[in-house]
């Protein structure tokens, strides 16, 4: 009996590293096929020695493939296990390997998009961006480091999980875990997105709604305050006790809206954008349109 060929941890790490480039030759014909094959090459080299076997393996892995780039990792893990069995003489045919790949890529991509693109990245991005907008270089650093730690940990551990579970993993796919992860991510995502809409979409309506002359005693009478240390102290005390800074209370439209529901206009704008997107209006058109609205609104004094 021939010696059993096994993929070492080094081989598997090499595959995981190469899967970083899975989208490198993304093309309209077979999408991630080139990158998939590129990632499998260390394993193919190790498992198959003859030219015919290698050629067949390379061709087998140049078939159509497309999923979320990080989700490819567990699928690679399973495929590595199958290829290892096959190289050792198990009756694993091309159809089985192709079936596992295709069977896993669809459902799993449905998990990857909401989790990575719609939850983790917007959250880390918003966290980093809010720091960065204040000029702190920590923002980009936190985003970059946290993202890559999460990404690499996910890719390596799910590939290992796939490798150990082998073809059994396809049974797990129908289990509740994936659904839980997807649903949990959407809940978290929706929650945080609402907060982002409230805090980061900025619209300020300039028009003044009212100018009210305040009663005497409700505002600070600056002319009666001497410009001395004592006077300043008195002034600040008055501010603290809630006196207005000027005798006329100016209320803008924005103040009124904020008293009603803070963030109402950003919310309405977001809902409008969602509706337009659903109507198949291109995001680019909406973005350009909003710039036009901003400029026109500013010129006429509304914004």
């Amino acid at each position: 009996m021939a010696e059993k060929i096994e993929l070492t941890k080094k081989d598997r790490l090499s595959v995981a590293w190469r899967s970083t480039f899975i989208q490198g030759s993304w093309n309209y014909e077979r999408m991630q096929n080139g990158g998939w094959c590129f990632a499998m090459i260390p394993a193919i080299k190790k498992l198959y020695k003859s030219k015919e076997d290698r050629s067949a393996a390379l061709k087998r892995h140049l078939e159509f493939f497309n999923t979320h780039p990080y989700i490819a990792s567990p699928i690679l893990g399973v495929t590595l296990a199958l290829e290892e069995d096959r190289a050792n003489g198990a009756p694993v045919d091309d159809v089985a390997i192709q079936g596992v790949k295709v069977g896993m890529m669809g459902p799993l991509a449905g998990v990857g998009d909401p989790v990575f693109w719609f939850t983790v990245r917007p959250m880390l991005g918003a966290l980093g961006a809010s720091l960065a907008m204040g000029g702190s270089v920590l923002g980009p650093i936190i985003f970059f480091v946290a993202w890559n730690v999460i990404r690499w940990a996910f890719m390596w551990y799910t590939q290992e999980f796939g490798y150990r579970a082998g073809s059994k993993i396809t049974e797990d796919l129908s289990g509740g875990l994936l659904q839980d992860v997807t649903k949990g991510a959407s809940i978290l995502g929706m929650f945080v997105l609402a907060a982002l809409v409230q805090r980061w979409v900025s619209i300020n309506f300039q028009p003044i709604v009212s100018r009210v002359q305040l009663d005497q005693g409700a505002y600070i009478e600056w002319d009666k305050i001497p410009m001395t240390g004592e006077g300043l102290q008195k002034a600040f005390e008055q501010v603290n006790s809630g006196l207005a800074l000027s005798p006329i209370k100016v209320t803008s439209l924005q103040n009124n809206l904020d008293e009603l529901i803070p963030g109402l206009v950003p919310l309405l704008l977001t809902l409008l954008c969602m509706w337009l997107l659903k109507k198949k209006v291109s995001p680019i058109v909406i973005i350009l349109g909003l710039f036009v609205v901003g400029i026109v609104g500013h010129v006429i004094g509304l914004l």
Binding site: G294, G297, L303
Partner: peptide
């Protein structure tokens, strides 16, 4: 001002 509103598109 437009830039402040455009943020909404990404969220949407």
């Amino acid at each position: 001002i437009g830039g402040g509103m455009v943020v909404a598109v990404g969220y949407a």
